[in-house]
């Protein structure tokens, strides 16, 4: 166990090319872009399938299908087809985040209590009001858990970007391996793992903030808290 690379102050210099700050920034950039594009594609589709109940076959099976697609293979296929660059990496990572978000959006919508939706309709809410004021807020806990697992996966997997010449924390792994510098590899592994944990914590806070207290049980007296 050699932590010298990790604790070398020179590698933490903000302006150092290939230093931790720049690699982390690039890494988070890929993660954020993939999550953004993935959410824009998967969330409306998942909500629509869950809301209408049409095409649930897609939502249920996309999870497993997505997991079984080897990201490295997809990445190398895209690079071979499109050439080196950011686009093939983003395509591969987006394909990775779509299934968990799609499946959880669907599962969240399906898990709703129908009486609540009926009550909302009975109170005269318009379909889009039912969707955005009742169904989506209530589906949020499940949806966020899917989003968090997508984020965890993509943080760990974005390291493969370095295998096709891009930046990100995978550089430490690939370059460290190429020159047998295990201290560098270890540093990369630790920083990615810490980054993943921090991101998950951050998303847990976001979830706490956006999920209605009435749903998470925080608004109820202790004795009546759900045991689930």
């Amino acid at each position: 166990m050699n932590l010298s690379y990790l604790f070398d102050a020179a590698h933490w210099d903000l302006s150092a090319p290939g230093g931790f700050p720049q690699l982390i920034l690039a890494h988070l950039g890929y993660v954020a872009l993939a999550l953004l594009i993935g959410t824009v594609i998967a969330l409306p589709v998942g909500l629509w399938i869950g809301h209408t109940g049409r095409g649930s076959f897609i939502a249920i099976n996309s999870g497993n299908a997505g997991r079984s697609l080897p990201t490295l293979g997809l990445l190398m296929l895209m690079v071979t087809l499109l050439g080196l660059g950011l686009t093939p990496v983003l395509i591969a990572l987006t394909v990775l985040v779509i299934p968990p978000i799609l499946t959880s959006a669907y599962a969240g919508m399906r898990s709703l209590d129908h009486r609540v939706v009926d009550a909302a309709k009975g109170m005269g809410m318009r379909p889009w009001q039912v969707l955005f004021k009742v169904e989506v807020p209530m589906a949020l806990p499940v949806l966020m858990s899917g989003f968090r697992s997508a984020a965890l996966q993509v943080v760990a997997t974005a390291t493969v970007a370095a295998a096709v010449g891009l930046s990100g924390l995978g550089r430490l792994l690939i370059d460290g391996l190429a020159v047998n510098d295990y201290s560098r590899v270890l540093a990369g592994a630790i920083v990615v793992a810490v980054l993943a944990v921090l991101l998950d914590l951050l998303l847990a806070l976001v979830q706490r903030w956006i999920v209605s207290p009435g749903l998470s049980g925080r608004a109820q007296p202790r004795s009546r808290r759900a045991t689930t």
């Binding site: 760990a156 270890l186 944990v197 998950d200």
Partner: peptide, 18 residues
């Protein structure tokens, strides 16, 4: 378990021999 699962596979593959 969550932390273990977040370690990138590439890092683990490279690091286990050490």
């Amino acid at each position: 378990c969550g932390v273990l699962y977040s370690i990138p596979s590439l890092a683990l593959f490279v690091f286990l021999p050490v």
